[in-house]
Design a protein around this nucleic acid. Structure first.
Lengths: 163, 163
DNA sequence: CCTTAATATCTCAGTAGTGAGAAGTTTAAT
DNA sequence: ATTAAACTTCTCACTACTGAGATATTAAGG
């Protein structure tokens, strides 16, 4: 601590360039996702919705009633999370559970009419907020980025890591 | 996948294609970041470090002692967060606070020798985990993605939103 | 049937932070 | 010096979940 007067730069040896390239991508990926996410979330707080809550409403809005497990896998929350989130939406009258006739363990989540109406009202401005948040890239660039990120995400999510 | 009009059951009217392009990018960006983040985090749990904790250690490891405010801005946590996180690292003997001679409000965070040793041990495998997580793209593709995401992130973080 | 395993949801204690406001300090202007 | 404004860190109540285990149901095999 006190005695350690570093007389030189505290730089370590730089990693090899393949790793350096990956590290750089990691940083910009994290920052871009964060910046975009914050802008999009700002368009939801006015309606008192978290990103996960909105994601559920959006899934139900575009696909109709879904089993809780399917919603869970689609929006990537934990089992406890989907129960909690659907509870919150149900308490607000935006969504409801429905029985599954063929499997009594399972439940559907579905929008109520109020939930439908809310989504019809706010989805367009949400989409517009995303379009605006992405406006740092041209549409062509957005498509390039989409292709690259899809490939990256599938490779990272899919195969288990190996040495 | 450009303009297919499917007048069908729970399908809503599709957004214009500029918005559709942005929405698609939003989805793949979120998913890629999540998949990558989970893989990288898996390389940290073995050392009982969260991503934010590691980010602090990494900043101090590569830059030497930093004012708490600078660390906060660098790793993008709240003011309460940086206090909390440095407390945790200090309790584990990995980091410590130091007085700032020129400003008695401020504190430096710095690695202890134990923190230095830990980073020297785990940083290489962390970098390798990132390289591995990014291996779905070639290095050329990684550089393209980095350029696009940097542009996207800067545009999204920088200017305040305007319609 | 009965047993065992697999699956779907729920419960609830725990986690990793956030954010508003407080306290102490510095700066600039009076 | 005095005041006010701006800054830096800290406190703490709160949030939005996670994840392990519980409960209920279904599926497969003997």
């Amino acid at each position: 601590m006190t005695t350690m007067t570093t007389p030189q730069a505290p730089r370590r040896k730089s990693p090899d360039t393949a790793t350096a390239t990956a590290l750089k991508l990691f940083v910009v990926l994290s920052r871009a996702q964060r910046a975009i996410g914050e802008r999009v979330e700002a368009s939801l707080v006015a309606h008192d919705l978290t990103h996960a809550e909105f994601a559920i409403l959006e899934a139900l809005y575009h696909k109709g009633p879904l089993l809780l497990g399917d919603v869970q896998r689609k929006i990537l929350v934990s089992s406890g999370g989907i129960t909690f989130l659907v509870d919150k939406l149900a308490q607000r009258g935006l969504a409801e559970r429905q029985l599954c006739p063929s499997d009594r363990r399972a439940r559907y989540a579905a929008l109520t009419r109020k939930g439908e109406a809310l989504m019809a009202q706010i989805f367009p401005s949400h989409a517009e907020a995303i379009r605006e948040a992405m406006s740092g890239l041209t549409r062509t660039e957005q498509k390039q980025a989409t292709a690259l990120l899809k490939q990256l995400g599938l490779a990272a999510a899919g195969p288990a890591k190996k040495a």
